[in-house]
C-alpha cells in the first residue's frame, strides 16, 4: 500500500503548498531567523569599534587560535554555534502547523471517515500524516539553510573579504539531529491531533505542551555543539531511534471508533 500512503502524503503536502498565504507565512519566520538576524550580527561585528575586554574573553576560546582576526572568530562562532540551534527549532515550528490539524482537521471537514474507508491501516494513515508534516518541515529547513548560507557567505566576502566554511557539525545537525528532533515533535503532535476534539485544541496543546519542551531541549544545544562531533553524532542516533520507536508505537491503542468520537 505504498501508493496509497504516497497519495495521502502528496495530498496533505499540496494542501499547504497550494495555500500561498500559509506557505509564505511558514517561510517568513525561518527566513527572518536565518537571514536577517545573522546579517545584523555580521554587520554589527564589522562596524563596532574593537573592545580589548571582548578580545581577551574570546581569545580564551579554542576557535580563536586558527583565526586571523577577531571579526572572523566571532563570525565563525555565529555560523557554527548559534545558527545550528535555529535549525533545531525551525523544522519543529513549521511542522507543528500542519501536524496539529493532521487528524482533527480531517475530522472537522468530515473527511476523516472517508479516509478511514480507504484500504489503509490506522498505522499507515498515521505514518503518512507524520511524513507529510515532516517533509514540509524539511523543505522549509532546506530552503532556509541554502538562503542563509548564500547570504552569509556573500556578506562575509564583501565585509571581511573571506569565506568561512561551515563546520562538520552542520552536517550532523542538518542530516541527523534536526530531522530526528523534528520527527519526534511531529509524531507527538500528530498523535495529539488524533485525540483532540478541535483544531484549536490540538494547536493549543501542541504549542503549550510539546513545543516548549522540545525547544527547551533544543535551546540547550549550543553547549553540545561546543563538544566533540562524535557526541553530537551519538545524540543524533539516539534521537533517530526514539523517533522511530514513537512512529511505530504511537498508534497502537487507537481504534477507528476512538478516532471518530
Amino acid at each position: 500500500m505504498k501508493t496509497a500512503m504516497y497519495a495521502l502524503i502528496k495530498k496533505d503536502f499540496r494542501g499547504v503548498a497550494s495555500n500561498r498565504r500559509l506557505f509564505s507565512a511558514l517561510l517568513i519566520v525561518p527566513l527572518v531567523l536565518t537571514i536577517i538576524l545573522p546579517s545584523i550580527f555580521l554587520v554589527t561585528i564589522h562596524f563596532v569599534p574593537d573592545n580589548p575586554d571582548v578580545a581577551n574573553l574570546l581569545s580564551l576560546l579554542p576557535e580563536a587560535a586558527g583565526m586571523e582576526s577577531l571579526e572572523l572568530t566571532l563570525s565563525s562562532m555565529i555560523l557554527n554555534y548559534i545558527l545550528p540551534v535555529f535549525f533545531m527549532m525551525i523544522p519543529i515550528m513549521t511542522a507543528s502547523i500542519m501536524a496539529a490539524s493532521a487528524f482533527v482537521g480531517e475530522k472537522e471537514r468530515h473527511t476523516l471517515e472517508t479516509l478511514l474507508y480507504c484500504p489503509l491501516t490506522l498505522k499507515q494513515i498515521f505514518q503518512a500524516k507524520v511524513w507529510a508534516s515532516f517533509l514540509l518541515s524539511m523543505v522549509v529547513s532546506l530552503i532556509s539553510f541554502t538562503a542563509m548560507l548564500l547570504v552569509m557567505e556573500t556578506e562575509l566576502f564583501f565585509l571581511m573579504g573571506k569565506l568561512i566554511l561551515p563546520s562538520v557539525n552542520w552536517l550532523v545537525v542538518m542530516l541527523l539531529l534536526s530531522p530526528a528532533i523534528s520527527l519526534i515533535a511531529v509524531t507527538l503532535i500528530v498523535r495529539g491531533s488524533a485525540k483532540a476534539q478541535s483544531v484549536e485544541e490540538s494547536q493549543q496543546s501542541a504549542v503549550f505542551l510539546i513545543l516548549p519542551l522540545i525547544l527547551l531541549i533544543a535551546g540547550q544545544f549550543t553547549g553540545v555543539l561546543l563538544m566533540n562531533v562524535w557526541i553530537l553524532l551519538g545524540l543524533g542516533i539516539v534521537c533517530v531511534a526514539l523517533a522511530w520507536i514513537l512512529l511505530q508505537k504511537s498508534m497502537g491503542r487507537f481504534t477507528y471508533e476512538k478516532l471518530l468520537q
Binding site: 494542501g15 471537514r109 471517515e113 472517508t114 474507508y117
Partner: peptide, 15 residues
C-alpha cells in the same frame, strides 16, 4: 475496505 464501497452522509470529500 478493498472489497466495499461506502457512501454515508458523514463521509465527505475535500472542498
Amino acid at each position: 475496505h478493498l472489497l466495499s464501497g461506502i457512501v454515508t452522509e458523514h463521509a465527505q470529500m475535500y472542498d
